[in-house]
Design a protein around this nucleic acid. Structure first.
Length: 491
RNA sequence: GGUCGCGUGGCCGAGUGGCUAGGCAGAGGUCUGCAAAACCUUGUACAGCAGUUCGAAUCUGCUCGCGACCUCCA
Protein backbone atom coordinates (compact mmCIF):
# COMPACT_ATOMS: atom_id res chain seq x y z
CA UNK A 1 0.00 0.00 0.00
CA UNK A 2 0.95 3.62 -0.36
CA UNK A 3 2.23 5.45 2.68
CA UNK A 4 1.34 9.09 2.21
CA UNK A 5 1.74 10.20 5.82
CA UNK A 6 4.65 12.25 7.11
CA UNK A 7 5.15 12.76 10.81
CA UNK A 8 7.73 14.56 12.88
CA UNK A 9 9.88 12.03 14.64
CA UNK A 10 11.20 13.48 17.88
CA UNK A 11 14.09 11.06 17.70
CA UNK A 12 15.46 12.60 14.51
CA UNK A 13 13.75 15.99 14.87
CA UNK A 14 12.64 15.65 11.29
CA UNK A 15 9.53 14.98 9.32
CA UNK A 16 9.70 11.42 8.11
CA UNK A 17 7.61 9.32 5.80
CA UNK A 18 5.57 7.04 8.00
CA UNK A 19 6.06 3.44 6.93
CA UNK A 20 4.80 0.85 9.41
CA UNK A 21 6.98 -2.13 10.29
CA UNK A 22 4.27 -4.57 9.23
CA UNK A 23 1.74 -2.88 7.00
CA UNK A 24 -1.17 -2.63 7.12
CA UNK A 25 -0.75 -3.08 10.86
CA UNK A 26 0.25 -0.13 13.01
CA UNK A 27 1.22 -0.32 16.65
CA UNK A 28 0.52 2.87 18.58
CA UNK A 29 1.35 3.35 22.24
CA UNK A 30 0.42 6.47 24.17
CA UNK A 31 1.31 7.16 27.78
CA UNK A 32 -1.91 7.21 29.74
CA UNK A 33 -2.82 9.09 32.90
CA UNK A 34 -1.76 8.52 36.46
CA UNK A 35 -5.14 8.23 38.09
CA UNK A 36 -4.81 10.22 41.26
CA UNK A 37 -6.83 13.29 40.36
CA UNK A 38 -9.45 14.61 37.98
CA UNK A 39 -8.26 15.08 34.40
CA UNK A 40 -7.44 18.65 33.39
CA UNK A 41 -7.24 20.41 30.05
CA UNK A 42 -3.58 19.63 29.51
CA UNK A 43 -4.26 15.93 29.92
CA UNK A 44 -6.75 16.09 27.09
CA UNK A 45 -4.33 17.22 24.41
CA UNK A 46 -2.36 14.03 23.78
CA UNK A 47 -5.49 11.93 23.87
CA UNK A 48 -7.23 14.12 21.31
CA UNK A 49 -4.10 14.35 19.17
CA UNK A 50 -3.50 10.64 19.05
CA UNK A 51 -7.18 9.86 18.71
CA UNK A 52 -7.12 11.91 15.52
CA UNK A 53 -3.96 10.16 14.38
CA UNK A 54 -5.50 6.77 15.04
CA UNK A 55 -8.71 7.71 13.26
CA UNK A 56 -6.83 9.08 10.29
CA UNK A 57 -4.59 6.04 9.93
CA UNK A 58 -7.71 3.89 10.13
CA UNK A 59 -9.36 6.01 7.45
CA UNK A 60 -6.33 5.37 5.24
CA UNK A 61 -6.78 1.64 5.64
CA UNK A 62 -4.25 0.81 8.32
CA UNK A 63 -5.19 -1.61 11.07
CA UNK A 64 -4.23 0.25 14.21
CA UNK A 65 -3.70 -1.36 17.56
CA UNK A 66 -3.86 1.49 20.01
CA UNK A 67 -2.52 0.80 23.49
CA UNK A 68 -2.93 3.38 26.20
CA UNK A 69 -2.10 2.49 29.76
CA UNK A 70 -3.55 3.47 33.08
CA UNK A 71 -0.91 4.19 35.67
CA UNK A 72 -2.46 2.98 38.88
CA UNK A 73 0.75 2.35 40.77
CA UNK A 74 1.61 5.40 42.75
CA UNK A 75 5.11 6.55 42.08
CA UNK A 76 7.05 8.67 44.48
CA UNK A 77 5.73 12.15 44.67
CA UNK A 78 8.66 14.01 46.15
CA UNK A 79 11.65 13.67 48.36
CA UNK A 80 9.93 15.27 51.30
CA UNK A 81 7.35 12.56 51.48
CA UNK A 82 9.90 9.94 52.39
CA UNK A 83 8.57 7.43 49.94
CA UNK A 84 4.89 8.23 49.98
CA UNK A 85 3.33 7.99 46.56
CA UNK A 86 0.70 10.09 44.83
CA UNK A 87 -2.09 7.58 44.98
CA UNK A 88 -1.39 6.52 48.55
CA UNK A 89 -1.24 10.14 49.63
CA UNK A 90 -4.56 10.89 47.99
CA UNK A 91 -6.01 7.76 49.58
CA UNK A 92 -4.84 8.86 53.00
CA UNK A 93 -6.27 12.35 52.54
CA UNK A 94 -9.62 11.03 51.42
CA UNK A 95 -9.53 8.06 53.77
CA UNK A 96 -9.97 5.52 51.02
CA UNK A 97 -8.19 2.43 49.81
CA UNK A 98 -5.64 3.27 47.12
CA UNK A 99 -7.61 1.15 44.69
CA UNK A 100 -10.72 3.18 45.44
CA UNK A 101 -8.79 6.24 44.39
CA UNK A 102 -7.68 4.46 41.26
CA UNK A 103 -11.22 3.40 40.41
CA UNK A 104 -12.68 6.84 41.05
CA UNK A 105 -10.25 8.70 38.84
CA UNK A 106 -10.14 6.04 36.17
CA UNK A 107 -13.90 6.42 35.84
CA UNK A 108 -13.62 10.19 35.70
CA UNK A 109 -10.94 9.88 33.04
CA UNK A 110 -13.07 7.54 30.97
CA UNK A 111 -16.04 9.86 31.27
CA UNK A 112 -13.97 12.80 30.06
CA UNK A 113 -12.59 10.77 27.15
CA UNK A 114 -16.11 9.85 26.12
CA UNK A 115 -17.29 13.46 26.38
CA UNK A 116 -14.39 14.56 24.20
CA UNK A 117 -15.35 11.85 21.72
CA UNK A 118 -12.06 10.00 21.95
CA UNK A 119 -12.47 6.40 20.91
CA UNK A 120 -11.47 3.78 23.41
CA UNK A 121 -8.02 2.31 22.91
CA UNK A 122 -7.74 -1.26 21.66
CA UNK A 123 -6.05 -2.25 24.89
CA UNK A 124 -5.94 -0.29 28.12
CA UNK A 125 -3.53 -2.13 30.39
CA UNK A 126 -2.93 -1.14 33.99
CA UNK A 127 0.47 -0.98 35.61
CA UNK A 128 -0.76 -2.90 38.63
CA UNK A 129 -1.92 -5.70 36.38
CA UNK A 130 1.53 -6.09 34.88
CA UNK A 131 3.80 -6.34 37.88
CA UNK A 132 4.98 -9.79 36.79
CA UNK A 133 5.96 -8.51 33.36
CA UNK A 134 7.79 -5.60 34.89
CA UNK A 135 9.70 -7.80 37.30
CA UNK A 136 10.67 -10.14 34.53
CA UNK A 137 11.91 -7.27 32.44
CA UNK A 138 13.99 -5.95 35.31
CA UNK A 139 15.51 -9.40 35.78
CA UNK A 140 16.57 -9.47 32.16
CA UNK A 141 18.14 -6.05 32.41
CA UNK A 142 20.08 -7.16 35.48
CA UNK A 143 21.17 -10.31 33.64
CA UNK A 144 22.36 -8.11 30.81
CA UNK A 145 24.54 -6.24 33.26
CA UNK A 146 22.73 -2.94 32.96
CA UNK A 147 21.04 -2.77 36.33
CA UNK A 148 22.01 -3.48 39.91
CA UNK A 149 20.31 -4.10 43.19
CA UNK A 150 20.97 -1.80 46.08
CA UNK A 151 19.31 -2.09 49.45
CA UNK A 152 16.16 -3.74 48.12
CA UNK A 153 15.85 -1.38 45.16
CA UNK A 154 17.01 -1.87 41.61
CA UNK A 155 18.55 0.89 39.53
CA UNK A 156 19.33 1.16 35.87
CA UNK A 157 23.03 1.68 35.29
CA UNK A 158 23.05 4.59 32.90
CA UNK A 159 26.82 4.89 32.80
CA UNK A 160 27.22 1.27 31.82
CA UNK A 161 24.44 1.56 29.26
CA UNK A 162 25.97 4.61 27.67
CA UNK A 163 29.12 2.67 26.86
CA UNK A 164 27.10 0.77 24.28
CA UNK A 165 24.28 3.14 23.41
CA UNK A 166 23.56 6.80 23.16
CA UNK A 167 21.66 7.73 26.30
CA UNK A 168 20.04 11.12 25.64
CA UNK A 169 19.40 10.64 21.95
CA UNK A 170 15.70 11.43 22.28
CA UNK A 171 15.85 14.35 24.67
CA UNK A 172 19.18 15.80 23.58
CA UNK A 173 20.54 15.50 27.10
CA UNK A 174 24.22 15.06 27.59
CA UNK A 175 25.03 12.43 30.17
CA UNK A 176 27.92 14.34 31.69
CA UNK A 177 25.64 17.29 32.33
CA UNK A 178 23.12 15.05 34.00
CA UNK A 179 25.79 13.56 36.19
CA UNK A 180 27.10 17.00 37.03
CA UNK A 181 23.62 18.10 37.96
CA UNK A 182 21.46 21.03 37.10
CA UNK A 183 23.84 23.85 37.80
CA UNK A 184 23.96 25.20 41.31
CA UNK A 185 20.38 24.28 41.89
CA UNK A 186 21.26 20.63 42.12
CA UNK A 187 18.39 18.84 43.73
CA UNK A 188 18.65 16.13 46.28
CA UNK A 189 16.83 13.17 44.84
CA UNK A 190 15.33 10.48 46.98
CA UNK A 191 17.48 7.40 47.33
CA UNK A 192 20.46 9.14 45.80
CA UNK A 193 22.94 7.47 48.09
CA UNK A 194 21.84 4.02 46.89
CA UNK A 195 22.74 4.81 43.31
CA UNK A 196 26.09 4.31 41.75
CA UNK A 197 25.53 7.41 39.76
CA UNK A 198 23.33 10.42 39.94
CA UNK A 199 21.86 9.79 36.48
CA UNK A 200 20.74 6.25 37.31
CA UNK A 201 17.01 5.75 37.67
CA UNK A 202 14.88 3.30 39.61
CA UNK A 203 13.48 0.14 38.06
CA UNK A 204 12.20 -1.18 41.35
CA UNK A 205 11.84 0.60 44.66
CA UNK A 206 11.86 -0.94 48.06
CA UNK A 207 8.66 -0.16 49.92
CA UNK A 208 9.06 1.81 53.09
CA UNK A 209 6.75 0.71 55.90
CA UNK A 210 4.30 3.53 55.16
CA UNK A 211 4.15 2.70 51.49
CA UNK A 212 0.93 0.78 51.20
CA UNK A 213 1.03 -0.07 47.48
CA UNK A 214 3.52 -2.91 47.44
CA UNK A 215 4.20 -6.20 45.74
CA UNK A 216 6.57 -9.08 46.41
CA UNK A 217 9.60 -9.31 44.15
CA UNK A 218 12.96 -11.08 44.03
CA UNK A 219 14.33 -7.99 45.82
CA UNK A 220 11.72 -7.90 48.55
CA UNK A 221 8.50 -5.96 48.97
CA UNK A 222 8.36 -2.95 46.75
CA UNK A 223 6.87 -1.34 43.70
CA UNK A 224 7.98 -0.75 40.13
CA UNK A 225 9.78 2.39 38.99
CA UNK A 226 7.84 4.91 37.02
CA UNK A 227 9.28 4.18 33.61
CA UNK A 228 9.31 0.41 33.48
CA UNK A 229 5.55 -0.06 33.17
CA UNK A 230 5.37 1.50 29.73
CA UNK A 231 8.29 -0.58 28.48
CA UNK A 232 6.75 -3.77 29.83
CA UNK A 233 3.25 -3.15 28.54
CA UNK A 234 4.19 -1.75 25.15
CA UNK A 235 6.49 -4.67 24.38
CA UNK A 236 3.91 -7.16 25.61
CA UNK A 237 1.12 -5.90 23.38
CA UNK A 238 2.96 -4.32 20.47
CA UNK A 239 6.22 -6.22 20.30
CA UNK A 240 9.79 -5.40 21.13
CA UNK A 241 9.84 -2.85 18.36
CA UNK A 242 6.69 -1.04 17.36
CA UNK A 243 5.70 1.88 15.17
CA UNK A 244 4.60 4.93 17.10
CA UNK A 245 4.98 6.03 20.68
CA UNK A 246 3.19 9.21 21.64
CA UNK A 247 2.90 11.45 24.66
CA UNK A 248 3.35 14.95 25.95
CA UNK A 249 6.62 16.75 25.42
CA UNK A 250 7.14 16.93 29.14
CA UNK A 251 7.52 13.16 29.17
CA UNK A 252 10.39 13.20 26.73
CA UNK A 253 12.83 13.34 29.59
CA UNK A 254 13.26 11.41 31.71
CA UNK A 255 10.32 9.10 31.03
CA UNK A 256 10.72 8.30 27.37
CA UNK A 257 14.48 8.42 27.45
CA UNK A 258 14.38 5.84 30.21
CA UNK A 259 11.93 3.72 28.25
CA UNK A 260 14.32 3.56 25.34
CA UNK A 261 17.22 2.62 27.57
CA UNK A 262 15.29 -0.07 29.44
CA UNK A 263 13.83 -1.66 26.36
CA UNK A 264 17.11 -1.57 24.51
CA UNK A 265 18.85 -2.85 27.61
CA UNK A 266 16.37 -5.70 27.91
CA UNK A 267 15.61 -6.72 24.34
CA UNK A 268 18.69 -5.47 22.48
CA UNK A 269 16.57 -3.53 20.02
CA UNK A 270 15.28 0.02 19.85
CA UNK A 271 11.66 -0.10 21.00
CA UNK A 272 10.12 2.60 18.84
CA UNK A 273 10.42 3.69 15.23
CA UNK A 274 8.60 7.01 15.47
CA UNK A 275 8.36 9.10 18.63
CA UNK A 276 5.67 11.77 18.59
CA UNK A 277 5.28 14.50 21.19
CA UNK A 278 2.50 16.99 21.56
CA UNK A 279 3.24 20.41 22.96
CA UNK A 280 1.77 21.96 26.08
CA UNK A 281 -1.42 23.86 26.73
CA UNK A 282 -0.51 27.19 28.25
CA UNK A 283 -2.39 29.72 30.29
CA UNK A 284 -0.96 33.24 30.29
CA UNK A 285 1.90 31.77 28.33
CA UNK A 286 2.80 29.29 31.04
CA UNK A 287 2.40 25.57 30.94
CA UNK A 288 -0.78 24.33 32.53
CA UNK A 289 0.31 21.70 34.96
CA UNK A 290 -0.16 20.11 38.29
CA UNK A 291 3.14 21.36 39.61
CA UNK A 292 2.25 24.97 38.85
CA UNK A 293 -1.27 24.59 40.18
CA UNK A 294 -2.67 26.59 37.27
CA UNK A 295 -4.69 23.79 35.73
CA UNK A 296 -8.41 23.73 35.07
CA UNK A 297 -10.22 20.42 35.24
CA UNK A 298 -12.11 19.31 32.16
CA UNK A 299 -15.26 19.04 34.19
CA UNK A 300 -14.84 22.70 35.18
CA UNK A 301 -14.78 23.69 31.53
CA UNK A 302 -17.90 21.68 30.89
CA UNK A 303 -19.75 23.32 33.77
CA UNK A 304 -18.10 26.73 33.68
CA UNK A 305 -17.44 26.35 37.38
CA UNK A 306 -14.05 28.01 37.69
CA UNK A 307 -13.12 31.59 38.57
CA UNK A 308 -11.14 32.07 35.37
CA UNK A 309 -13.98 30.95 33.13
CA UNK A 310 -16.70 33.37 32.10
CA UNK A 311 -18.95 30.58 30.82
CA UNK A 312 -19.21 26.83 30.31
CA UNK A 313 -17.55 25.30 27.27
CA UNK A 314 -18.91 22.15 25.69
CA UNK A 315 -16.57 19.20 25.18
CA UNK A 316 -16.76 19.73 21.43
CA UNK A 317 -15.66 23.32 21.87
CA UNK A 318 -12.59 22.05 23.68
CA UNK A 319 -11.89 19.49 20.99
CA UNK A 320 -12.35 22.02 18.22
CA UNK A 321 -10.13 24.48 20.05
CA UNK A 322 -7.30 21.96 20.18
CA UNK A 323 -7.69 21.00 16.53
CA UNK A 324 -7.30 24.61 15.45
CA UNK A 325 -3.65 24.48 16.46
CA UNK A 326 -0.93 22.12 15.32
CA UNK A 327 -0.17 19.51 17.95
CA UNK A 328 3.50 20.45 18.13
CA UNK A 329 2.78 24.08 19.03
CA UNK A 330 1.92 25.42 22.41
CA UNK A 331 -1.68 26.48 22.64
CA UNK A 332 -2.63 29.41 24.82
CA UNK A 333 -6.01 29.36 26.42
CA UNK A 334 -8.33 32.26 27.21
CA UNK A 335 -12.04 32.89 27.31
CA UNK A 336 -11.78 34.87 24.12
CA UNK A 337 -10.03 32.03 22.32
CA UNK A 338 -12.51 29.47 23.59
CA UNK A 339 -15.50 31.57 22.61
CA UNK A 340 -14.03 31.89 19.13
CA UNK A 341 -13.70 28.13 18.95
CA UNK A 342 -17.26 27.67 20.16
CA UNK A 343 -18.67 29.88 17.43
CA UNK A 344 -16.49 28.43 14.74
CA UNK A 345 -17.48 24.91 15.68
CA UNK A 346 -21.13 25.89 15.66
CA UNK A 347 -20.72 27.33 12.20
CA UNK A 348 -19.34 24.06 10.90
CA UNK A 349 -22.17 22.11 12.51
CA UNK A 350 -24.85 24.46 11.25
CA UNK A 351 -23.55 24.15 7.71
CA UNK A 352 -24.10 20.41 7.89
CA UNK A 353 -27.78 21.07 8.49
CA UNK A 354 -27.83 23.55 5.64
CA UNK A 355 -26.18 21.01 3.37
CA UNK A 356 -29.25 18.80 3.64
CA UNK A 357 -31.49 21.64 2.55
CA UNK A 358 -29.57 22.42 -0.63
CA UNK A 359 -31.29 21.96 -3.95
CA UNK A 360 -28.82 20.40 -6.38
CA UNK A 361 -28.05 22.24 -9.58
CA UNK A 362 -27.25 20.53 -12.82
CA UNK A 363 -23.74 21.89 -12.70
CA UNK A 364 -21.29 23.29 -10.21
CA UNK A 365 -20.20 26.88 -10.27
CA UNK A 366 -16.66 27.16 -11.51
CA UNK A 367 -13.68 26.56 -9.25
CA UNK A 368 -15.07 24.18 -6.67
CA UNK A 369 -11.88 22.85 -5.04
CA UNK A 370 -11.19 19.23 -4.23
CA UNK A 371 -11.78 19.60 -0.50
CA UNK A 372 -11.09 15.96 0.29
CA UNK A 373 -7.71 16.14 -1.33
CA UNK A 374 -6.86 19.37 0.44
CA UNK A 375 -7.78 17.90 3.80
CA UNK A 376 -5.80 14.70 3.29
CA UNK A 377 -2.82 16.68 2.06
CA UNK A 378 -2.91 18.70 5.26
CA UNK A 379 -3.26 15.64 7.47
CA UNK A 380 -0.51 13.83 5.62
CA UNK A 381 1.78 16.69 6.50
CA UNK A 382 2.39 15.87 10.16
CA UNK A 383 -1.29 15.77 11.04
CA UNK A 384 -1.91 19.44 10.36
CA UNK A 385 -5.45 19.72 11.67
CA UNK A 386 -5.34 23.52 11.59
CA UNK A 387 -4.90 23.52 7.81
CA UNK A 388 -7.41 20.72 7.44
CA UNK A 389 -9.97 22.83 9.27
CA UNK A 390 -9.28 25.83 7.08
CA UNK A 391 -10.37 23.69 4.12
CA UNK A 392 -13.43 22.58 6.02
CA UNK A 393 -14.30 26.25 6.34
CA UNK A 394 -13.97 26.69 2.60
CA UNK A 395 -16.52 23.90 2.25
CA UNK A 396 -18.74 25.58 4.81
CA UNK A 397 -18.55 28.82 2.88
CA UNK A 398 -19.54 27.05 -0.32
CA UNK A 399 -22.48 25.36 1.35
CA UNK A 400 -23.78 28.63 2.80
CA UNK A 401 -23.18 30.48 -0.44
CA UNK A 402 -25.09 27.81 -2.32
CA UNK A 403 -27.95 28.14 0.11
CA UNK A 404 -27.92 31.89 -0.45
CA UNK A 405 -28.03 31.28 -4.19
CA UNK A 406 -24.59 32.67 -4.88
CA UNK A 407 -22.96 29.37 -5.82
CA UNK A 408 -24.36 26.28 -7.46
CA UNK A 409 -23.52 22.76 -6.36
CA UNK A 410 -24.29 19.62 -8.25
CA UNK A 411 -25.86 16.57 -6.70
CA UNK A 412 -22.49 14.87 -6.91
CA UNK A 413 -20.74 17.68 -5.05
CA UNK A 414 -23.41 17.75 -2.38
CA UNK A 415 -22.97 14.01 -1.92
CA UNK A 416 -19.20 14.45 -1.72
CA UNK A 417 -19.53 17.21 0.87
CA UNK A 418 -21.82 14.99 2.90
CA UNK A 419 -19.25 12.25 2.66
CA UNK A 420 -16.47 14.63 3.73
CA UNK A 421 -18.50 15.56 6.78
CA UNK A 422 -18.82 11.91 7.70
CA UNK A 423 -15.25 10.95 6.88
CA UNK A 424 -13.43 13.96 8.29
CA UNK A 425 -15.51 16.37 10.34
CA UNK A 426 -17.31 13.68 12.31
CA UNK A 427 -14.85 10.91 11.45
CA UNK A 428 -11.17 11.74 11.63
CA UNK A 429 -11.48 15.03 13.50
CA UNK A 430 -14.07 13.48 15.75
CA UNK A 431 -16.36 16.48 16.07
CA UNK A 432 -19.77 15.44 17.23
CA UNK A 433 -22.91 17.33 16.37
CA UNK A 434 -24.39 17.91 19.79
CA UNK A 435 -27.31 19.82 18.37
CA UNK A 436 -28.94 16.80 16.85
CA UNK A 437 -30.74 14.04 18.63
CA UNK A 438 -34.07 15.79 18.99
CA UNK A 439 -37.02 13.49 18.93
CA UNK A 440 -39.62 13.60 16.23
CA UNK A 441 -41.99 14.90 18.91
CA UNK A 442 -39.89 18.03 19.25
CA UNK A 443 -39.64 18.43 15.53
CA UNK A 444 -43.42 18.16 15.22
CA UNK A 445 -43.98 20.69 17.98
CA UNK A 446 -41.53 23.08 16.43
CA UNK A 447 -43.22 22.78 13.06
CA UNK A 448 -46.49 23.70 14.72
CA UNK A 449 -45.05 26.65 16.62
CA UNK A 450 -43.32 27.96 13.53
CA UNK A 451 -46.53 27.64 11.52
CA UNK A 452 -48.44 29.67 14.10
CA UNK A 453 -45.72 32.29 14.17
CA UNK A 454 -45.65 32.49 10.39
CA UNK A 455 -49.38 33.08 10.41
CA UNK A 456 -48.93 35.93 12.85
CA UNK A 457 -46.18 37.40 10.73
CA UNK A 458 -48.29 37.20 7.63
CA UNK A 459 -50.87 39.24 9.50
CA UNK A 460 -48.10 41.64 10.50
CA UNK A 461 -48.79 40.74 14.08
CA UNK A 462 -45.14 41.15 15.00
CA UNK A 463 -45.89 41.45 18.69
CA UNK A 464 -47.04 37.84 18.71
CA UNK A 465 -44.31 36.58 16.42
CA UNK A 466 -41.60 38.25 18.46
CA UNK A 467 -43.11 36.95 21.65
CA UNK A 468 -42.83 33.42 20.30
CA UNK A 469 -39.28 33.99 19.16
CA UNK A 470 -38.22 35.49 22.50
CA UNK A 471 -39.85 32.71 24.46
CA UNK A 472 -38.09 30.09 22.38
CA UNK A 473 -34.82 31.93 22.83
CA UNK A 474 -35.29 31.51 26.56
CA UNK A 475 -35.29 27.78 25.88
CA UNK A 476 -32.10 28.14 23.86
CA UNK A 477 -33.92 27.62 20.61
CA UNK A 478 -33.05 30.16 17.98
CA UNK A 479 -35.45 31.02 15.18
CA UNK A 480 -34.01 32.16 11.89
CA UNK A 481 -36.21 33.77 9.25
CA UNK A 482 -34.35 32.93 6.11
CA UNK A 483 -35.13 33.72 2.53
CA UNK A 484 -36.00 30.10 1.85
CA UNK A 485 -38.13 29.63 4.94
CA UNK A 486 -37.89 29.50 8.68
CA UNK A 487 -35.42 27.29 10.49
CA UNK A 488 -34.44 26.73 14.08
CA UNK A 489 -31.44 25.43 15.93
CA UNK A 490 -30.74 24.55 19.49
CA UNK A 491 -27.83 26.47 20.98
C1' G B 1 24.08 27.12 34.50
C1' G B 2 23.15 23.32 30.32
C1' U B 3 19.85 21.71 26.24
C1' C B 4 15.81 22.92 23.14
C1' G B 5 11.96 25.98 21.35
C1' C B 6 9.07 30.34 20.56
C1' G B 7 7.99 35.83 19.53
C1' U B 8 2.77 36.61 13.25
C1' G B 9 -2.68 42.01 12.44
C1' G B 10 -7.50 43.44 18.65
C1' C B 11 -7.51 37.77 20.20
C1' C B 12 -6.40 32.46 18.96
C1' G B 13 -3.49 30.42 15.28
C1' A B 14 -1.33 28.16 10.17
C1' G B 15 2.78 28.97 7.10
C1' U B 16 8.58 29.04 6.62
C1' G B 17 12.34 32.21 0.43
C1' G B 18 8.14 35.14 -4.25
C1' C B 19 1.46 33.09 -4.55
C1' U B 20 -5.30 35.59 0.34
C1' A B 21 -4.13 30.21 5.65
C1' G B 22 -8.37 29.84 8.71
C1' G B 23 -11.47 31.15 12.92
C1' C B 24 -13.25 34.97 16.42
C1' A B 25 -13.81 40.16 17.16
C1' G B 26 -14.22 45.13 14.47
C1' A B 27 -15.93 48.27 10.07
C1' G B 28 -19.09 48.88 5.61
C1' G B 29 -22.82 46.57 2.56
C1' U B 30 -26.80 42.79 0.78
C1' C B 31 -31.06 40.29 2.71
C1' U B 32 -34.96 41.22 6.55
C1' G B 33 -40.99 44.11 9.65
C1' C B 34 -37.09 43.80 13.27
C1' A B 35 -33.55 40.36 14.98
C1' A B 36 -30.54 36.22 14.10
C1' A B 37 -28.08 33.57 10.44
C1' A B 38 -25.81 33.71 5.87
C1' C B 39 -23.28 36.08 1.90
C1' C B 40 -20.06 40.16 -0.20
C1' U B 41 -16.26 43.87 0.83
C1' U B 42 -12.58 45.43 4.37
C1' G B 43 -7.32 44.87 7.85
C1' U B 44 -1.74 45.04 3.98
C1' A B 45 0.62 41.46 10.47
C1' C B 46 5.12 38.73 10.96
C1' A B 47 9.86 41.41 18.34
C1' G B 48 14.26 44.83 17.03
C1' C B 49 18.86 45.67 14.32
C1' A B 50 22.31 44.14 10.63
C1' G B 51 23.41 40.78 6.66
C1' U B 52 22.66 36.92 2.42
C1' U B 53 19.35 37.21 -2.03
C1' C B 54 16.58 39.83 -7.92
C1' G B 55 13.21 38.97 -3.68
C1' A B 56 12.75 37.23 3.60
C1' A B 57 7.75 36.93 8.19
C1' U B 58 10.46 32.56 6.13
C1' C B 59 17.90 31.82 5.65
C1' U B 60 22.46 33.88 8.75
C1' G B 61 24.36 36.82 12.89
C1' C B 62 23.50 39.85 17.02
C1' U B 63 20.05 42.19 20.65
C1' C B 64 15.59 42.13 23.51
C1' G B 65 11.41 39.35 25.48
C1' C B 66 8.95 34.66 26.70
C1' G B 67 8.66 29.52 27.56
C1' A B 68 9.79 24.06 28.04
C1' C B 69 13.05 20.26 29.88
C1' C B 70 17.21 19.20 33.27
C1' U B 71 12.32 16.82 39.66
C1' C B 72 6.34 14.41 39.58
C1' C B 73 3.74 16.48 35.34
C1' A B 74 0.12 15.35 29.21
Amino acid sequence: MEHPVYITNSLTRQKENFIPLNPPHVGLYVCGPTVYGPPHLGNARPYITFDVLRKYLTYLGYKVRYVRNITDVGHLESDADEGEDKIAKKARLEQLEPMEIVKLYTDLFHLAMEQLNNDKPSIEPTASGHIIEQISMIEKIIANGLAYESNGSVYFDVTQYSKQHHYGALSGKVLDDLIAGAGEEQRVLEGQEEKRNRADFALWKKAMPEHIMRWPSPWGLGFPGWHIECSAMSSKYLGETFDIHGGGMDLQFPHHEAEIAQSQGCNHVAPVKYWMHNNMITIDGKKMGKSLGNFIHLEQFFTGNHPLLTQAYAPMTIRFFMLQAHYRSTLDISNQALEAAEKANQKVMNAFGTLHKLKPSSNNTANIPDIRKQITTALNDDLNTAIALSHVFEMVRLINAAYAGIEQLSEQTIAEFTSIYHDFVFGVLGLRNDQTGDSSDVTGLMDLIIAIRTEARNKKDFATSDKIRDALAQLNIRIKDEKNGVSWIKD
